[in-house]
Design a protein around this nucleic acid. Structure first.
Length: 896
RNA sequence: GGGGAAGUGGCGAAACCGGAAGACGCAUCGGACUUAAAAUCCGAAGGGCGCAAGCCCGUGGGGGUUCGAGUCCCCCCUUCCCCA
C-alpha cells in the first residue's frame, strides 16, 4: 500500500488541524505567502541534506542517486529564464527519487575562476574576488527562490582556497606521473594588447576586441598529456548512457586513425624525414613531400637560394588560423625548399625515386609528424597542389571505368605498385606495412587528432601552479602539506606591457625558498585554465568539507558515478573530455572506484525568445514592435483568422522569428520578475510545460498565465475560497469504499495521469506530465463532489516534484504533519488503466467513415460485423476484397 | 566547411510498435454570472465547400513502400544548434 494514499492516522477536526507552518486565514492561493514559508521550512529542517556513510541519520538500506547539474559560471548578469530549465528538470528528478526512498545527492556550486570574471573585473575596476563573491550571492539567492532542492551544506566555489588546494593536489599527481610537462608551443600573441589570447579570442588572425593583428609564437606552456589516455577515452564511451551525437563528437574530437609512419631519406642529410600516412598502399604514388612550415627540419633543409622565400612563407603561415590553413576551398600555397628526398619504395636512380620537399600551410605541425607524403593520384588536396605547382601525378589505384575526375579516393586494385599490384586497398595496406616493417623503413602507427591539453594561461584569476623553478633549471613541486599555493592579493592584475603574466609582478609571492633545500626558488607565474576546477567538482561534492584529502575514499565508493548529469550541449567535447581524463588518472591511482565520472548525460534544450525582423533583415528589439490582432473582419463582417501581424513604429510589417535571448534585443526575461508576478511554482510548471526538456523552444510571456491558472484551479478544487476552512469538508473524511460512479471515473483519470507522468520521466518530456495533470484537474473540477481524499493525496504526491510549494501547502492542509518531500511516490494501478468498452474507427479504403463502440475484448468477427453495419452506405456497390481488423483500434474495409 | 537536431493550426506543442492528426495550454470568439468590467464557469474553433447531413484537402516540397504513413525508404528545401 502506498503510504501517501491512505494515511493510517485519525484526523483532528477541521478547526483543530495543526498546520506547520501555519497559513494565514485568507483562503485564496497566494504564492508570495506560501512559497517563502515552505522554503524556510525545508531549509530549517535540512530536508535536502544527503547523508554520507558514517553520518548520523545515514540509512544504508536506501539506494543512492546522484543527480548533478553542470555548475554555472557566476556572471554579473545573474540568471535569466533560460538557465533554470535544466536545474528545474534535474530538481524534479531529485525530488521524485527522494519520494522513491533514495538517498539523493543533489548539490550546487560555482565554476568561479576564469577569463570572463577577470575581464569583467578589469572593466569595472573591481577585484575578481569581489565581483565573484557578489555574483555568487546573486546566484545563490536566485537558486533558493526557485525552490531547487539542493543540499546547500555541500555548496562550493572553485576559486576558494579550500577547493583549489585540492585542484593543485590533483595537478601534483599529474606532475608526479609525468602527465604534466612544460613545452614551447605556438600560442596566439597580440603585440598591440601585449598579451596571449585564447583561440576563440582570435578571429581571422585579428583580436576579437579591437581587431589588432595577432601572430602565433612559441611560448613555454604547461601541457597535460591527455593523448596518453586517447585510446581509453575512446573505448570507454561505449558503456556510457549518453546521447549518441555527443559520443560521436567525442570520438571525432579524439580522431583516431590507423596508418603508417614512413621514413624518407633526405639527400645530403643524416636525418630521415618521418611522415604519417593512412594510405601506405599508395607509397609508389608519393611524388613529393610536404612539411608544415613549423617543422623543425625546415631551416636545416632549405637551400641557400630558397632561404629568403621560405622564411617569408613561414612568417605568413604563422599569422593564419588552422581553419584558414586547411580550408579545402582555398587556393593552395607552398614553397619548394630546394631539397630532395628518396621514395623508399624505389631504388636510388630509378625513375620517380627522387622527390622534391616542399612546405605548405595545409600541413599542420601538431598532427601526425608534421609532414606528409603527397600522393596526388589518391588525394584531392595533393592533386590540387601538384596541378598548381606542376608536380608529377602517378595513379596507384585503378579508378573504375568511366572515371573522369581528378584524384581517385575510392577502392580498386593497386597499379604501378610492383610489390602489391592488383590488391585492393585493405590488402594493399597490409602488404605495404609488412614490406615497410621488414625493410626497416616504416612501421604501423595509430595517431590521434587529439592533442595534448594546453593547460596554462598568462592570466591572474585562476589556480596557481604548485611548482617551484630552481636556479639550475629544474622544476619541482610544492609538497602536498604546503598546499594550497594561494593566489596573492594584487591590486593591479591587468596583463603587463611586456606580455609577462600579472603574477610576475607579485614579487614577494614570486621569490620564495624551496622547503626542501632552503635555496631561493621562483614560483610559476601562469595559472590554470578555467576548465581545471570543473574537472573534479563532482567528486568534491561527495565530501566537500574534507581537509585531509580531496574526498574520502569511502564517500566516493558510496556515491560512485554521477547517475544523471544535466547540462548544455556546448560542453559536449571539452569539459566532458577533460573531466573524463582526470577521472581516469584518479582511477589509475586507485583514488576513485569507477572508470567513468558521468554514467548518464542529458542535454537540456536552449531557451530562445521571439525577435522581430524587418524587411532589411535587421533584428528589432521587442519594445519597437507593435502586435496586431490575429483576427480580422472581412468585408461581410465575418471573423477571419490570419497570421498574427507585427509592425514596427513606422507601421511597416515585420516578421516574428526565433532568436537567442540577448540584451540588445531586449528579450531577456529575469526569473525574479516571473516569480514576483506568478510565483515560483507557476514558473517551474511553465518552464516544463513549454516542451520537452531536451528541445529548444521560445519563451512566450503571454503563455505563463496558463500555468498559473492550472494551479489556481487545483487550489479551488481542494480549498473553498469562500470559507475559512483550510480544506473542503468532504476531503477531511477517509473514503474507504471501492470507487464507483463519478469516483470511479476520477480513479481511472487519476491512474491514467499517473501512468503518463511515469512515462514523462523516460525522456524528460515533462510537458506531457503537466498536460496530464491539467486534464485530471479539469476532470476533478467537473466531478468535484466525487473526488476522494485518497485521490487528492496521490495527485499531490505526483505534483510535488513539479510544484513543490503548492503541493506542500495542500498536503499540510490535508492534515499531514510531515513534509511531502518523503511521502511515497504514487504508482498507477493497472487495474484502472483499462476501459470496459472502447471506441474503434471504421475505415473504408483507409478513410475514416464511422466510429463504433465495442467491448474491449470483442472478437474480430464481431468487430467486422459491427463495422460493416456502421459503414453499409459506403460499401454499397463495392466488393470488399480484404478486411483489416486491429482490435482496440480500427476496422478497415478494402474494396475496389 | 564539418557534425548534429528539427520542420505538425494564429502560437507553444501532443500523437509510445505504421492504425481516429492536432491531446494540453496560449491567443481568439460566443454564452452564463455582473449595473458594468475583471476574475470565474460553460461552450466553439486546422483549411475549403455546403442551409444541412456531409464531402474534399491537410503534418516543409516531390517521389516510393503499405489495406493504412506525421511516423519507414529515396531526393530536395528551410531553420536552429554545436565544432572549426
Amino acid at each position: 500500500m502506498l503510504a501517501c494514499s491512505f494515511p493510517a492516522r485519525t484526523l483532528r477536526g477541521s478547526i483543530g488541524l495543526r498546520l506547520e507552518p501555519r497559513p494565514p486565514l485568507k483562503n485564496t492561493y497566494e504564492p508570495s505567502e506560501i512559497e517563502p514559508r515552505w522554503q524556510r521550512h525545508w531549509e530549517e529542517r535540512g530536508l535536502f541534506r544527503a547523508m554520507n556513510p558514517g553520518e548520523e541519520g545515514f540509512d544504508p538500506r536506501q539506494p543512492k542517486f546522484y543527480v548533478l547539474d553542470m555548475f554555472p559560471y557566476p556572471s554579473g548578469a545573474g540568471l535569466h529564464v533560460g538557465h533554470p530549465i535544466g536545474y528545474i528538470g534535474s530538481d524534479i528528478v531529485a525530488r521524485r527519487k527522494r519520494m522513491e526512498g533514495c538517498n539523493v545527492l543533489h548539490p550546487m556550486g560555482y565554476d568561479a575562476f576564469g577569463l570572463p570574471a577577470e575581464q569583467y573585473a578589469i572593466q569595472t575596476g573591481q577585484h575578481p574576488a569581489e565581483t565573484t563573491r557578489k555574483n555568487i550571492a546573486t546566484y545563490r539567492r536566485q537558486f533558493k527562490a526557485l525552490g531547487l532542492s539542493f543540499d546547500w551544506s555541500r555548496e562550493l566555489a572553485t576559486s576558494e582556497p579550500e577547493y583549489y588546494r585540492w585542484t593543485q593536489w590533483i595537478f601534483a599527481r599529474l606532475f608526479d606521473l609525468g602527465l604534466a610537462y612544460q613545452s614551447e608551443v605556438p600560442v596566439w600573441w597580440c603585440e598591440e594588447l601585449k598579451t596571449v589570447l585564447a583561440n576563440e579570442e582570435v578571429i581571422n588572425g585579428r583580436s576579437e576586441r579591437g581587431g589588432h593583428p595577432c601572430v602565433k609564437r612559441p611560448l613555454k606552456q604547461w601541457m597535460l598529456k591527455i593523448t596518453a589516455y586517447a585510446e581509453r577515452l575512446l573505448a570507454d564511451l561505449d558503456g556510457l548512457d549518453w546521447p549518441e551525437h555527443v559520443k560521436t563528437m567525442q570520438r571525432e574530437w579524439i580522431g583516431r586513425s590507423e596508418g603508417a609512419e614512413v621514413e624518407f631519406a633526405v639527400e645530403g642529410a643524416k636525418e630521415k624525414l618521418a611522415v604519417f600516412t593512412t594510405r601506405p598502399d599508395t607509397l609508389y604514388g608519393a611524388t613529393f613531400l610536404v612539411l608544415a612550415p613549423e617543422h623543425p627540419l625546415v631551416a636545416k633543409l632549405t637551400s641557400a637560394a630558397k632561404r629568403a622565400e621560405v622564411e617569408a612563407y613561414v612568417r605568413a603561415a604563422g599569422a593564419k588560423s588552422d581553419l584558414e590553413r586547411t580550408d579545402l576551398a582555398k587556393e593552395k600555397s607552398g614553397v619548394f625548399l630546394g631539397a630532395w628526398a628518396r621514395n623508399p619504395a624505389r631504388e636510388a636512380g630509378e625513375s620517380g625515386a627522387r622527390i622534391p620537399i616542399w612546405i605548405a600551410d595545409y600541413v599542420l605541425a601538431q598532427y601526425g609528424t608534421g609532414a606528409i607524403m603527397a600522393v596526388p593520384g589518391q588525394d584531392e588536396r595533393d592533386w590540387e597542389f601538384a596541378e598548381r605547382f606542376e608536380l608529377p601525378i602517378v595513379r596507384t589505384v585503378q579508378p573504375p571505368e568511366g572515371f573522369d575526375g581528378k584524384a581517385y579516393v575510392g577502392d580498386g586494385p593497386a597499379i604501378a605498385s610492383p610489390r602489391w599490384d592488383g590488391k585492393r586497398i585493405d590488402e594493399a595496406k597490409r602488404a605495404a606495412l609488412a614490406w615497410l616493417e621488414s625493410s626497416g623503413q616504416g612501421r604501423a602507427k595509430v595517431t590521434y587528432k587529439l592533442r595534448d591539453w594546453l593547460f596554462s594561461r598568462q592570466r591572474y584569476w585562476g589556480e596557481p601552479f604548485p611548482v617551484l623553478h630552481h636556479a639550475d633549471g629544474k622544476t619541482t613541486r610544492v609538497p602536498d602539506e604546503l598546499l594550497p599555493v594561494e593566489l596573492p592579493a594584487m591590486k593591479d592584475f591587468t596583463p603587463s606591457a611586456n606580455g609577462s603574466p600579472p603574477l610576475a609582478r607579485a614579487k614577494e609571492w614570486l621569490e620564495t625558498r624551496d622547503p626542501v633545500s632552503g635555496k631561493p626558488v621562483r614560483r610559476d607565474t601562469d595559472t590554470m585554465p578555467g576548465w581545471a576546477g570543473s574537472c573534479w567538482y563532482y567528486l568534491r561534492f561527495m565530501d566537500p568539507k574534507n581537509d585531509q584529502a580531496p574526498f574520502a575514499a569511502e564517500a566516493q565508493r558510496y556515491w560512485g558515478s554521477v547517475d544523471l548529469y544535466v547540462g548544455g550541449v556546448e560542453h559536449a567535447v571539452l569539459h566532458l573530455l577533460y573531466a573524463r581524463f582526470w577521472h581516469k588518472v584518479l582511477y589509475d591511482l586507485k583514488l576513485v572506484s569507477t572508470k567513468e565520472p558521468f554514467q548518464r548525460l542529458f542535454n537540456q534544450g536552449l531557451l530562445t525568445a521571439f525577435a522581430y525582423k524587418d524587411s532589411t533583415g535587421r533584428l528589432l528589439p521587442e519594445d519597437e514592435v507593435i502586435v496586431l490582432s490575429d483576427v480580422e473582419k472581412d468585408e461581410q463582417g465575418d471573423l477571419k483568422k490570419t497570421p498574427t501581424n507585427f509592425i514596427d513604429k513606422h507601421g511597416k510589417p515585420v516578421e516574428r522569428v526565433i532568436a537567442k535571448m540577448s540584451k540588445s534585443l531586449k528579450n531577456v526575461v529575469n526569473p525574479d520578475d516571473v516569480v514576483k508576478e506568478y510565483g515560483v511554482d507557476t514558473f517551474r510548471v511553465y518552464e516544463m510545460f513549454m516542451g520537452p526538456l531536451g528541445e529548444s523552444k521560445p519563451w512566450n510571456p503571454r503563455d505563463v498565465a496558463g500555468s498559473r491558472r492550472f494551479l489556481d484551479r487545483l487550489w479551488r478544487l481542494l480549498v473553498d475560497e469562500e470559507s475559512e476552512s483550510p480544506l473542503r469538508a468532504d476531503l477531511l473524511r477517509e473514503s474507504a469504499t471501492v470507487p464507483a460512479g463519478d469516483t470511479l471515473a476520477l480513479e481511472r483519470a487519476l491512474n491514467k495521469t499517473l501512468a503518463r507522468i511515469e512515462d514523462s520521466f523516460q525522456q524528460f518530456n515533462f510537458n506531457t506530465a503537466i498536460a496530464a495533470m491539467m486534464e485530471f484537474v479539469n476532470e476533478g473540477t467537473k466531478r468535484r463532489a466525487a473526488l476522494t481524499r485518497s485521490q487528492a493525496e496521490r495527485f499531490l504526491c505526483a505534483l510535488a516534484p513539479f510544484a513543490p510549494h503548492l503541493a506542500e501547502e495542500l498536503w499540510a492542509r490535508l492534515g499531514h504533519a510531515e513534509s511531502i518531500t518523503r511521502a511515497a511516490w504514487p504508482k498507477a494501478d493497472p487495474a484502472y488503466l483499462v476501459e470496459d468498452e472502447v471506441e474503434l474507427a471504421v475505415q473504408v479504403n483507409g478513410k475514416l467513415r464511422a466510429r463504433i463502440r465495442a467491448p474491449k475484448d470483442a472478437q474480430r468477427e464481431r468487430l467486422e460485423e459491427l463495422g460493416r453495419a456502421a459503414v453499409s452506405e459506403h460499401l454499397s456497390g463495392k466488393t470488399v476484397k480484404k478486411v483489416v481488423v486491429v482490435p482496440g483500434r480500427l476496422v478497415n474495409f478494402v474494396g475496389d
